[in-house]
Write a protein that binds this DNA or RNA. Structure first.
Length: 287
DNA sequence: CATGAGCGA
């Protein structure tokens, strides 16, 4: 019996664009790199609507630097003794186990579930007071149909929910997620009940700038270093968007100003990764 | 040396 004709999958179909029949006149595409920074350049040629030959260069970053070293912590983990099911495996030292643990996936909005009955979109429209209104939900305070995030009166006052947050501190972060009705997804901005706004703290407060960081210092490293002084609400390391390489400076925000001050006093001039850190108050970000 | 990213109708 002859094999059935191989069907083309959609991904294998040739892309058809206008003027495609003339494409053989164009130079073949050139792919440069990826270089040692993982930056890949693709040079393609095509005809535009007027039939002019145009050159299109796209730059993409393919992956992290191949030469990037493992962090100290990762190296340390390599030397850990195997445990669990892996104890009996002898597949060499770099072993990734497939978990045999059963994980039940919850589907809060599954058909028939309680959550399904509440129609969020309808909610929003009602709040906006008009049918066909846009889905305008402020991501800062969670208010619906009132203003956009950028116009939020609490813009800089909301507790920080994005970025790097020290989850080990206090129940606020973990507990707030489960605070409201169980099983229903609650957007970060709406967690934590009452939003009268009075008790909200400025989130960009107590911001400490850290400069002279080594290239491979990342946010987790900074957190490790600074959390000793008190609860940290945010860590940020500036990274070159194109190469992914650290720009050598970052910010750490503390919940308490005194902690920030102690961190500055202790860590400014501190030797870290063979460089001398500079730690000082950050001037507030312009906006 | 150096002051952050996203974000709409």
């Amino acid at each position: 019996m002859a094999a059935p004709p191989q069907k083309l999958r959609w991904g294998e179909l040739e892309e058809e664009d206008d003027g495609g029949d003339l494409d053989f006149l164009l130079p073949p595409p050139v792919v440069l790199g990826p270089d040692e920074n993982g930056v890949k350049k693709t040079i393609q040629y095509r005809f535009d609507e007027e039939g002019n030959k145009v050159k299109v260069t796209t730059t993409t970053r393919v992956r992290k630097l191949a030469r990037a070293r493992l962090s100290k912590r990762a190296l340390e983990r390599r030397s850990w003794a195997k445990f669990g099911d892996a104890v009996h495996e002898d597949v060499g030292s770099r072993l990734t186990m497939v978990s045999t643990e059963e994980i039940v996936l919850e589907r809060p909005r599954a058909p028939g579930s309680k959550a399904e009955e509440t129609n969020i979109a309808g909610d929003v429209l009602a709040a906006a007071g008009k049918a066909g209104a846009v889905l305008m939900v402020c991501r800062t305070c969670g208010k619906k149909g009132d203003h956009w995030t950028s116009k939020c009166p609490y813009k800089d006052l909301a507790p920080q929910t994005d970025g790097f947050i020290d989850k080990s501190l206090g129940p606020e972060n973990a507990a707030s997620a489960s605070g409201t009705s169980k099983g229903t997804y609650v957007p970060p901005g709406m967690r934590g009940g009452d939003r009268s706004g009075v008790e909200m703290k400025r989130r960009d407060e107590n911001s400490v700038r850290v400069t002279n960081l080594s290239e491979d210092t990342r946010e987790p490293d900074l957190l490790e270093l600074f959390r000793a002084f008190g609860p940290v609400s945010r860590v940020y390391v500036a990274v070159d968007q194109k190469t992914g390489v650290s720009r050598g400076f970052g910010f750490v925000n503390f919940i308490h100003r005194e902690d920030a001050e102690r961190a500055i006093n202790k860590l400014n001039g501190y030797g870290y990764d063979n460089l001398i850190l500079r730690v000082e108050w950050a001037t507030p970000r312009p906006n």
